[in-house]
Design a protein around this nucleic acid. Sequence first.
DNA 1: CTCCAATCGCAACTGGTGTAGCTTTAGCCT
DNA 2: AGGCTAAAGCTACACCAGTTGCGATTGGAG
Lengths: 197, 197
Amino acid sequence: MEAGSSKRPGGRSARVRDAVRQATLAELAEHGYAQLTVERVAERSGVHKTTVYRRWGSVEGLISDALELAKEEPWPIPDTGTVQGDLRGVVQLVRSGFADPELGPVSSAFVAAAMQSPEAARALHEFFVARHEQSAEVVRRAVARGELPDVVDVREVIRVAVAPVYYRLFVAHEPVSEQDADRAADAALAAARAGVL
Amino acid sequence: MEAGSSKRPGGRSARVRDAVRQATLAELAEHGYAQLTVERVAERSGVHKTTVYRRWGSVEGLISDALELAKEEPWPIPDTGTVQGDLRGVVQLVRSGFADPELGPVSSAFVAAAMQSPEAARALHEFFVARHEQSAEVVRRAVARGELPDVVDVREVIRVAVAPVYYRLFVAHEPVSEQDADRAADAALAAARAGVL
DNA sequence: CTCCAATCGCAACTGGTGTAGCTTTAGCCT
DNA sequence: AGGCTAAAGCTACACCAGTTGCGATTGGAG
């Protein structure tokens, strides 16, 4: 919790913080959330175990901290000229992110951690609020172009579009093909065109 | 793992198995997945700790076993006469299940456990395959009645309908209102009507 | 340049999860 | 009924995540 607003932002504390964050992401990418332990992160970062426990508290704390970072950096909203292209692009971005052998385990860890720790859940919620807001731009553009009727909730279109991908991955535990992703985007689009969103 | 096909199905083994299963569900309902431990289940069931470890192996094993049970019992597919009523009914069933103070934690535990243990993931996958198959009946009826055009994949309609509920609950960690659930069902219906599923 | 408060490193300790080896119980078969 | 064997019970303990108390170090204010 609030490991970024120390009283000594410019010295050893900062180095320690960065080392731990980097070690956390590396461990996550290599061994996944299930294997993630404070001791491994401490050893890998060269920071003492006690220090990590004091500043981050637990594995969930490490994840939450990493999430704060991830929330900051924006992601590339597609601009293909058509709603269908844009929406498909957004959903494919999600799909490919989890399929990536390096990013996948890290992103999955965020979802897993949020299911066990209220702290991580809050952080992940904030993350998705930001994501929805950014992604909804493709819907707003479509409405402005006259491609879609007035949409009640632009963020809902995004949710409906990406939800099937997450559902397959984390709930039903089914594989997600590119066709599946496109179909999910098309379904959300059809619903928006029909005026139900 | 296969705790149901013992060589002595009718005696003490069966009693032990039932006691442990019941204790698992009770613990899950009261304290949730995060607090679930083999020792508590053992103590509550009156079965010795080592016995539980031998037959179920771990917390994930207990969950997987409970899932096998849950998969068996069928659930009430709505039959309101219209696709919209039926689909909304299915999604509301999901929503209310997780909102229920007794069933909610147990169901959530299944999802959480599946994210950490491949064994539980497989069990949950099987569970959802069965659920999709059963729920898809409402779509088949609609096609037979001529309410929907020929649908390529009836199960996909179900997936798209329920996905937003799960997405809100377990990924974005947003509240899910009854309106949200209805809207998700309507969106899937619109997509099916448009012929994208 | 000096001091001091914050932070980190260290080693010993605690508590609880999971295991090993053995004994006892109870279901099933003749 | 009586024995045979699978399965449950029991004790002890090994192991590791997380804690604690204290001394060492560092960075910045004056």
